[in-house]
Amino acid sequence: MGPLSGVRIIELVGIGPGPFAGMMMADMGAEVIAVDRKGAASPVELPVDINRRGKRSIALDLKSAEDKEIFFKLCETADAVFEGFRPGVMEKLGLGPDDVLKRNPKIVYGRMTGWGQTGPLAHAAGHDINYISLSGALHGIGPADGPPTVPLNLIGDYGGGAMMLAFGMVCGILEAKNSGKGQAIDVSMVEGSSLMMTLMHSLMASQRWAPMRGVNLLDGGAHFYDTFETKDGKFVSFGAMEPQFMQEFIEKTGLDESWMQNHLNFSKWAELKEELRTLFKTKTQEEWCDFLEGSDACFAPILPFWEAHKHPHNQARNSFTEIDGLMQPAPAPKFSRTEPEVSHGPVEKGADTDAILKELGVI
C-alpha cells in the first residue's frame, strides 16, 4: 500500500507540522510509529487530530532509562526518526543524532525547527508568522495600502517546514540505501519558506518585481490576478495572466478589445481592476461558475475549506475521503501503480504500546 511501503519511521510527537509530515509519509504507506509522551494530554492536543491518521502509537517517558532503551530499540528497527523540539532538547535526553546513530548507523535523523539548529536565533521561541517574516515571504502578502496579511500558518509550518521535512527524509532514506550510512537533516522553516520564494527572487532579478507590496504580477497588484466579490457576497478567483486566457475572458464577457492593449500596462491596472469589481458584482458566484467554469478564462469559485469536498471536480478525483464519519483531504499525490490509501483514522495515544513492546521483545 503506497510507494513508501516497507519503510519504518519513528515520529517523536510534537505540534502541528511534525505530525503533518508523519501523516504524509503514513499516507504513502510508511509504517509511522508515533512516540507519544506518557501522562495527561497537553493543552495543545486536539480532541480530533487528522494528522494522526494511519499511524501506530506507543507512549513513553523519555526521561526514564527503561523507556529510553525502548526508544533506542525502536530506532534500531527503523529507517528514519524525526523530531521538532528546540535545539539541544534531544541531546540533553541522550537521544540526539549522535546517540541514535551509534545504535543504528543507517538511520536518517530529521530535525525540524523554525530558525534551524544553529544561528543566533536558534534557541528563541517563535511561530510560523515570525519565520516567514525573516524569510521575506510575509512582506509580499497583503494590500499596497496596509500591513502584510497573515496567510494562515501554511507557508512556514507546512510548506517550508513539514513538506521540506518529508522531502528531506525521503531523500535521506534513498541516500542511506546507497551509502549504508545515515545522517542528520536540519530543516529550518525560515529557509524552507525562503526557498519557496525562488520565483520572486527571479522576478526581482529580471526587473519584473517592484520592491513594494500589492502592486506586482502575483501579489494582487494586477487586475487579471486577484479575487473579486460577487452579487451574493461570495468570492471568485480570476487569474487570466497570459494574453490568450485574457482574450477568452474578454470574448465571453463582451469587454472592449482595448482591454488586450492594456493587459500588461501597469499604469492601467488599478483602473481595470475597478471595472472588474463592478463586473463581477453583476452575477452570483453560482452564475459566474455556470458562465466561466471549465473555460480557459482561469476562473474558480472561492470555497470554504469545509465545503470544498462538494465540488464536482474534487468529487470526480476522490480528492477527499471520509474516515470514521469525518470528511478530510485524501492522500496526495496520486500514483498509477502504488496508490496510497489511509489505513485507519487518528490513532489514540499509546494505543499500540503493548503490541510494539511485544514486537521488540520487551514484554
Rank of each mutant, 00 (worst) to 15 (best):
K349N: 08
G94I: 04
F245T: 07
G214I: 02
S319H: 12
L165D: 03
P43H: 01
G159W: 06
L121R: 14
L60A: 01
F249A: 05
S5C: 07
P147H: 09
I155Y: 05
K68T: 01
S64T: 05
G142R: 01
D36E: 13
G16P: 08
F228E: 04
K38A: 12
L101G: 05
Y109N: 05
L292K: 01
N104C: 08
R37T: 14
P148S: 06
G168Y: 06
A137F: 12
E322Q: 12
P148I: 04
D145L: 02
G168C: 05
I50M: 09
Q261C: 15
N216L: 02
R317V: 01
G84T: 14
A330Y: 01
M23P: 01
G114L: 07
D324E: 14
I15K: 15
F280E: 10
A162K: 04
N104K: 12
L255G: 04
L357M: 07
M260E: 10
Q117P: 13
V44I: 15
F20Q: 06
K358D: 11
M90G: 00
L74C: 06
L138W: 03
W209E: 13
F335C: 02
E275M: 09
G136D: 03
W259R: 02
W115N: 00
L357A: 10
S135W: 03
K73R: 09
K334I: 04
M327Y: 13
N104H: 10
T113L: 04
L264F: 15
V44Q: 11
I70D: 08
D99Y: 10
A122H: 06
A34H: 12
G18F: 06
L74Y: 13
G18N: 05
E341P: 01
R337K: 15
F245W: 03
L60F: 11
H123F: 15
A308N: 06
E191K: 07
S258T: 15
T282A: 03
G2D: 00
P304E: 08
A59C: 06
G18L: 07
E191I: 09
N265M: 14
G2K: 00
G39H: 08
S42K: 14
T230S: 11
I250N: 06
K73D: 05
L60D: 11
G160Q: 03
P340W: 00
D354M: 06
H139K: 15
L101C: 09
E45Q: 13
F71V: 02
S206V: 12
A316T: 01
W269I: 09
M327V: 15
A300Y: 11
G221T: 06
T198W: 08
L101F: 07
A59Q: 03
S237R: 03
E229N: 13
W209S: 09
G119T: 07
E229S: 15
E257P: 14
F299M: 11
L360Y: 04
Y131M: 02
L357F: 00
N262F: 11
A65V: 12
M200S: 14
T118M: 12
V81P: 00
A351L: 03
D49M: 05
S133R: 13
I132F: 05
P97V: 01
A125V: 13
A332M: 15
Q244R: 07
G6W: 01
G119M: 04
M112T: 02
F72M: 13
G22T: 08
K234C: 12
G14Y: 07
V342Q: 08
D226Q: 04
E45V: 02
F299T: 09
A184M: 04
E91Q: 10
M196G: 09
I363W: 12
K349T: 13
A270K: 06
L60E: 05
